[in-house]
Amino acid sequence: MELRQACRAAGIGTVAASEHTGRPRLHRALPALSARLVVSLGTPMDIRYGGHARTMQAVVAGLMRPGVATPSLTLRPHQPIVYVDLSPMAAQRLVGVPLSEVDAGGTGADVLLPWVSRLCEELADQPADQRESLLRIRLLERLEEAARLDVSRDAFEALKIIGLSRGQMSVEELARRVHLSPRRLRHVMRSALGVGPKFASRVARLSAAVSRAGQGADSWARIAAESAYHDQSHLVRDFHDLMQTTPTAWLAEEGRNLQGRRHPSP
């Protein structure tokens, strides 16, 4: 099986290796229904989350939590970073504990993944254009060796449906799809993942809106309507609550990553 296909089947999503140029700048993690592994191959990373600043070489971040915005990272010049999105199931198998126990702002990866320091050394020794494929190979190897935890698969199936529906499915319909009562669904999701279906749907909705902006939608009002928000001000409130910024400010921060795409009008 081709490497990328094998990774997708195993729950390994986006993998990126990059090195920032220019002045230091803030990068906010986007809202997502996935976990993350982020590793610096140079100086340690400065990460802010929940009003606290930490310095870490490598972090594993769990799913977002209600009441706290996504973590932010200060990108510094000549600081090579490798990043990977992991499905909740894959992340749980790698770390060996339920995701409800993994800090959404990032836990030092050496605490949960004792092999990560060796991986950092191996990646640092590789040419930049070969780091992505090596990371994919090593993660596949680790997932093949990992044990499966006895955690309700209903929670993962519900989260998958929420993502596919872009957060636009009611809790009642979601519960029906996974053959649980709404109350039982809330319990199994919070126990396994640390979030309930309502909050997960909110994250999925904002993630879909951010994706539409990156694809070149012509206005935030249209994005709000197509992403099941009541109106544009509702979308702005979610940007503030989940990312501690506004749509316009986010575009100013991330505009360089959207080159060649039409930016939404205010």
Rank of each mutant, 00 (worst) to 15 (best):
A200V: 00
H240C: 02
R222Q: 06
R222K: 13
R153G: 12
S191W: 02
A175Y: 09
S207F: 03
S233K: 12
A158L: 07
D150H: 08
L174Y: 01
V178E: 07
F156P: 08
S227A: 15
A158Y: 08
V210F: 04
H179V: 07
A146C: 08
R184Y: 06
A155C: 11
D238M: 04
E141F: 13
L164I: 09
D231Y: 00
M189N: 13
L139K: 09
A249H: 08
R186N: 12
P182N: 10
F239I: 03
A217T: 07
V195F: 07
G194E: 15
R190N: 15
A158C: 06
L143P: 02
H179G: 02
R183K: 06
S191D: 11
V236Y: 13
G214T: 04
S219V: 08
D154M: 10
A213V: 10
A147K: 13
R237A: 12
G163Y: 08
R183E: 11
R186C: 12
T245G: 01
R237S: 05
L193M: 07
K160P: 02
V178H: 09
W220D: 10
I137P: 02
R177C: 05
L135T: 10
L164E: 15
W220I: 07
L180E: 06
L235R: 01
L180P: 03
S133E: 13
S219Y: 09
A208W: 00
A155W: 08
S227P: 06
L164W: 13
H187P: 00
A155Y: 07
I223A: 01
G216H: 00
V203F: 07
M189G: 09
E145W: 05
A209Q: 06
A228D: 09
A249E: 13
V178C: 08
P182C: 10
S201A: 15
V195L: 14
A204R: 08
R148V: 15
E226R: 01
E144D: 15
V203A: 06
S211K: 15
T246L: 04
A228M: 03
A217D: 13
A221K: 14
S152M: 13
W220E: 07
M169F: 15
K160M: 13
R136F: 04
I161M: 05
S233E: 13
R166I: 08
A204G: 12
S191G: 01
Q168K: 09
A221T: 14
K198W: 10
A200L: 01
L235A: 05
A217I: 03
F156W: 05
L206T: 03
G167I: 01
R148Q: 14
L143W: 01
W220T: 05
R138M: 14
F156E: 13
R186D: 14
H179S: 10
A158S: 06
Q232P: 00
T248H: 12
L235D: 05
S233T: 11
L139S: 09
A217M: 11
A208T: 00
A213K: 07
L185I: 02
I161E: 06
L235E: 06
L180T: 03
P182A: 11
A192G: 04
H240Q: 11
G216W: 00
P197N: 11
T246S: 15
P182T: 10
V171L: 05
R222V: 00
L139A: 07
Q244N: 14
L134G: 01
S152P: 10
I162P: 02
G163M: 10
L193V: 04
L242R: 06
A158R: 04
E157H: 14
R212V: 02
R237K: 12
A225T: 00
S181M: 08
R166Q: 15
S152W: 09
A155P: 05
S219L: 10
